[in-house]
């Protein structure tokens, strides 16, 4: 098991992508969290998104 896998024995360090309320709620629980100012990739164009996904192999 690598360091990152040992989720249960480590302090949570969270990156939040999307709804900001979830980051706010984690802060209330004194969790270290970074909120990402996400926006739809490729200007929201789904055809370009599919192409990007292929390129990235995701």
């Amino acid at each position: 098991m690598t360091e990152k896998e040992k989720l249960f024995s480590k302090e949570l360090k969270v990156i939040n992508i999307g709804i900001e309320m979830f980051a706010d709620d984690l802060e209330k629980q004194n969790v270290d969290v970074i909120h990402v100012n996400w926006r739809p990739p490729a200007g929201g164009d789904l055809d370009i998104l599919k192409f990007l996904e292929k390129l990235e192999g995701s």
């Binding site: 989720l7 949570l12 999307g18 739809p40 990739p41 990007l52």
Partner: peptide
């Protein structure tokens, strides 16, 4: 945050997998 261990994703579904 180099020691991040969890990502919460709540973007619209079509972008979530990426």
């Amino acid at each position: 945050m180099r020691d991040a261990n969890l990502v919460i994703i709540s973007v619209p579904g079509v972008y979530a997998k990426r």
